[in-house]
Design a binder for these strands. Structure first.
Lengths: 342, 342
DNA sequence: TTGTAGGCGTTATCAT
DNA sequence: ATGATAACGCCTACAA
């Protein structure tokens, strides 16, 4: 069962390798009949070209990679399909590359650029605290999509698409305040977090302050390190602890919908009701937030528009139509059944 | 900004390329000092070897790929981490390759084997109706993990790990019958489906029959083609239609948890209650089934055990410790708050 | 329109 | 322990 190569096909067809290559790559200057014959032989022998060899030789490739950290995050679900569709619409091909938790996405990117001769990259997810120096090692245009971080890289190094986490978080907290809540707990990322966790926490603090509410340290709760972050389980555990502590509060703002769902369940298991005993709000606008019972009040990020814009910007930069761009989208506060005025 | 190669590093270090290669690949016969020096130069120049060239030349690679169709399916969430952990524990490296809906996983597999010199493959998800002939083109050991199909391939061609979809579905339907339900609707895959949809439907029919219940055509509902299959949205749409039709029933068995959640929501929006007006059961045992309100009665698949066993079998075959194996796991019926006796 | 030959960046083989 | 050199499989001038 030795691997079959282009040479074997050439021999089988009685032609030169370059003719076979031309047939494979839809080259124009080749006789249609020979091409048909070659393709037939290829199919009959189940020949598949070796990509490593192709990539090695190729100089250019029209492929764009989407690097995603945290593939299991349902927030990305809708985006991935949009990326694929938009990239194909531009006649490029699309690679979805997963990056493991502890992998450095920059290194993965550089490796992949060399290997596949990429034209562009989309980074999705992760905390992304890389220095400008690291970032500038990436030799092709790239866009940071829905990546919130406190330490933004230089404006010209790369493009970005996201919502304003601070502002949206402010919006939600302010909404809860306007509903009459004064004792609002938050579930956020641990203190060392420098990305969305911090941004959303800051938005919360500012909204409280603008509503004349002093933040209560005991109501600022952090996800547990020993449980997967941003997970339902984490929201459940943190909320359970909060309830048991006997702390007085009327609303919980969880910085993502999964946490919010965990919160709700903890409240139910505690024998209380949402929203009658406690209001619960989330963030992201996942499908499940809408289908949960009660439906969760959340900030809906326009994920598909954001994904489209990501690709649009990327192609603008690739085709030199424009230089790096930074686009901020607005989230929409979707009021569900999980919050009520008091 | 020309790409830097192994030759450049060799020149920079004043050594031959083979010495650099030895340093990179942790070859034993190399002076520790030269190695350290070379690695230093490599780091300073941010040199990263070209994988295409490596793969092309390499004969052997100790890497295993997991090919997953439908990456957004939360059912796979827990499995992926287990695969990664188990593969690394065996000192192999792990590639997660996504397969798009319309892509042929066999072709992707063959391509990848050639490109990366894979040692083994895990197929995850998809309907997988491939002939033995196609399957036997795959030249390395592979395991079909949690792939249900009515037309199983030859026992020796590959291994498999799954639950018995027919039996588990029977179990759930029988459970509903024993609770006193006689008019049980099912939401399943369209008639042309030859995989889990059909298997689970057959289990349902057999259980009804064994309980002396005649199946009612109007209570057998199929996912809508125009909506993503196995999605919450689909469950919602189908259930809404069922409710509107005025059909008489007391329970719904949705063949996956996402469908079941959509069902519940449709029932709520119809002004009815789960489980008081209708009992709802799912299948798979997703986290969200437990955290939903009410928690969903479901068949919990032991996904982590199955993932572990998948890798165990794969290595057994790779290391020639054993030939192809086929392991059936048992699901566990987890009674939630979404079903009640009548 | 087709075939020949050289080279892409790396590793393996053989010398030294 | 190290260096030169021949592959790996493919694409692409260039020649025919």
């Amino acid at each position: 069962m030795e691997a079959i190569t282009i040479k074997d096909i050439a021999k089988l067809c009685g032609v030169g390798v370059s003719t076979v290559s031309r047939a494979i790559n839809n080259h124009p200057d080749i006789n249609e009949e020979t091409k048909a014959m070659i393709m037939k032989v290829i199919r009959e022998n189940n020949y598949i070209p070796n990509n490593s060899a192709r990539n090695l030789k190729r100089t250019d490739s029209d492929v764009i990679a989407v690097l995603i950290k945290g593939i299991t995050n349902p927030f990305f679900n809708g985006m991935i399909k949009t990326f694929e569709r938009e990239i194909k619409r531009n006649k490029y091909s699309f690679i979805l590359q997963t990056v493991h938790d502890k992998q450095n996405e920059i290194e993965v990117a550089i490796e992949l650029i060399k290997e596949k001769k990429l034209k562009g990259i989309v980074f999705l997810g992760g905390n992304f605290s890389h220095s400008n120096e690291e970032l500038s090692q990436i030799s092709v245009p790239f866009v940071l999509s829905t990546i919130g971080t406190t330490q933004k890289p230089d404006k010209d190094i790369c493009s970005s698409v996201s919502v304003d986490d601070f502002k949206e978080s402010y919006k939600m907290t302010d909404y809860l305040c306007k509903l009459g809540h004064r004792k609002i707990a938050i579930i956020t990322a641990p203190m060392y977090d420098e990305s969305i966790g911090k941004l959303r926490l800051n938005g919360y603090l500012k909204a409280l302050s603008d509503n004349g509410i002093l933040p209560d340290k005991n109501l600022i709760r952090f996800m547990k390190d020993e449980i997967e972050s941003y997970s339902i389980q984490n929201g459940y555990a943190v909320t359970k602890e909060l309830l048991k502590s006997g702390e007085d509060f009327t609303a919980i703002f969880a910085i993502c919908d999964a946490l919010a769902i965990g919160s709700c369940k903890a409240i139910f298991d505690f024998g209380k009701s949402v929203p009658w005993d406690y209001s619960v709000a989330g963030f992201d606008g996942l499908d499940i937030a809408h289908y949960y019972n009660p439906s969760i009040t959340t900030i809906k990020q326009p994920v598909e528009d954001m994904a489209e814009e990501t690709i649009k910007i990327l192609f603008d930069v690739i085709l030199k139509k424009a230089s790096a761009q930074h686009k901020i989208f607005h989230g929409k506060l979707v009021a569900g059944q999980s919050t009520r005025p008091i």
